[in-house]
Amino acid sequence: MTNNVGTTDRTLRLIAGVILLAVTWIAPIAVFHGTAAVAIATIVGLILVGTALFRFCPLYRLLGKNTCAVK
């Protein structure tokens, strides 16, 4: 598993994922309408945080995209 998520991309994913998870835990009913929306937002937040932590995005691999700096 080679890294394909660069530093800027990683930072943005981590920030967006943490914000999404925080909103689903703090005020899920006020922001999202329905249980399905809360579940989807939680899953997307976890995926964003996970791809940021592991520096690997399976979708990027399928699309042939790489945001890492050339070494």
Rank of each mutant, 00 (worst) to 15 (best):
M1W: 05
M1N: 10
M1T: 07
M1E: 11
M1S: 11
M1L: 09
M1V: 08
T2M: 11
T2L: 13
T2Q: 12
N3H: 10
N4I: 02
N4C: 01
N4K: 00
V5C: 04
V5K: 02
V5N: 01
G6V: 01
T8N: 13
T8G: 15
D9W: 09
R10F: 13
R10M: 13
T11I: 14
L12V: 07
L12P: 02
R13A: 04
R13M: 03
L14R: 07
I15R: 13
I15V: 15
I15P: 08
G17Y: 04
G17P: 01
G17M: 02
G17H: 03
G17Q: 00
V18Q: 00
V18H: 00
I19K: 08
L20T: 05
L20D: 02
L21P: 03
L21D: 01
L21Q: 04
L21W: 09
A22G: 15
A22E: 05
A22K: 08
T24S: 11
T24P: 03
W25Y: 15
W25G: 10
W25M: 13
I26L: 15
A27H: 10
I29Q: 15
A30N: 14
A30P: 07
V31E: 04
F32I: 05
F32C: 03
H33N: 14
H33I: 10
H33P: 05
G34P: 06
G34C: 08
G34W: 05
G34Y: 09
T35W: 09
A36S: 13
A36F: 13
A36H: 11
A37D: 03
V38D: 00
V38E: 04
A39C: 07
A39T: 12
A39D: 06
A39P: 00
I40T: 13
A41C: 04
A41F: 03
T42V: 05
I43S: 12
I43T: 12
V44K: 07
G45W: 00
G45Y: 02
G45N: 04
L46H: 02
I47E: 06
I47V: 15
I47K: 01
L48Q: 03
L48K: 02
V49N: 05
V49M: 09
G50C: 08
T51V: 12
T51D: 06
T51N: 07
T51L: 08
A52I: 06
L53Q: 04
L53C: 09
F54L: 12
F54D: 00
R55G: 02
R55Y: 12
F56E: 02
C57R: 04
P58E: 00
P58M: 00
L59Q: 06
L59M: 14
L59C: 04
Y60F: 14
R61I: 09
L63F: 15
L63I: 03
G64H: 09
G64S: 07
K65H: 14
K65P: 02
N66F: 02
N66E: 01
N66S: 06
T67R: 06
T67W: 10
T67A: 08
C68T: 12
C68F: 00
A69L: 11
A69N: 09
A69T: 11
V70F: 05
K71I: 09
